[in-house]
């Protein structure tokens, strides 16, 4: 997989779609600037594709991206649930749950009663500080939900 080719192709398709969306609106004047931007995006995408083809060597750039996206799937699922949970359960309780979830799931050390107790304690301490600063000191409004 050539990274630059993928980037250029995906953004070219995106630019075409955005131009089409900007051209199919009822009030074209309001979409003039977005259309100009999508033209610019299209030209830059073509420039990326052309420069990729012209580059004879460029192994470092063309190398496939190295990332363990599977590792981050649980936290991505957590991100999707976060806005819903904070409005339903409460901002600070959700923050505590998310903090504990991340530090438990991504800890390099094995699970043990002592390690779990430490994670719970650190999570509670962190959220308590956040609560003290934002809710008590700065009086910032947050969604309350069922709990806090």
């Amino acid at each position: 997989m050539n990274v630059d080719r993928v980037t250029g192709s995906v953004t070219l398709v995106l630019a075409v779609v955005l131009y089409w969306l900007g051209s199919s609106a009822s009030n074209l004047d309001a979409f003039l600037f977005p259309r100009l931007i999508s033209i610019g995006m299209g030209l830059l995408s073509i420039a990326i594709l052309v420069s990729t083809e012209r580059r004879t060597t460029g192994a470092s750039r063309a190398a496939p991206p190295s990332f363990c996206w599977i590792t981050v799937i649980p936290v991505l699922l957590g991100f999707f649930a976060y806005p819903w949970a904070m409005e339903t359960i409460g901002f600070y309780v959700t923050a505590f749950a998310v903090f504990l979830f991340i530090v438990s799931l991504y800890a390099p050390d094995p699970y043990s009663p002592r390690a779990i107790a430490k994670r719970v304690a650190v999570s509670a301490a962190f959220i308590s500080v956040i609560y003290a600063v934002f809710a008590l000191l700065l009086r910032v409004q947050t969604p309350r939900g069922v709990l806090i």
Binding site: Y82, F91, F99, Y106, S123, F126, T142
Partner: peptide, 20 residues
């Protein structure tokens, strides 16, 4: 401070920052 603790703290602060 281990990276996963920093990541958890940044996540919570980021959500707080965006919401507030």
């Amino acid at each position: 401070v281990p990276k996963h603790y920093i990541a958890a703290a940044v996540t919570v602060l980021a959500v707080f920052g965006a919401h507030s």
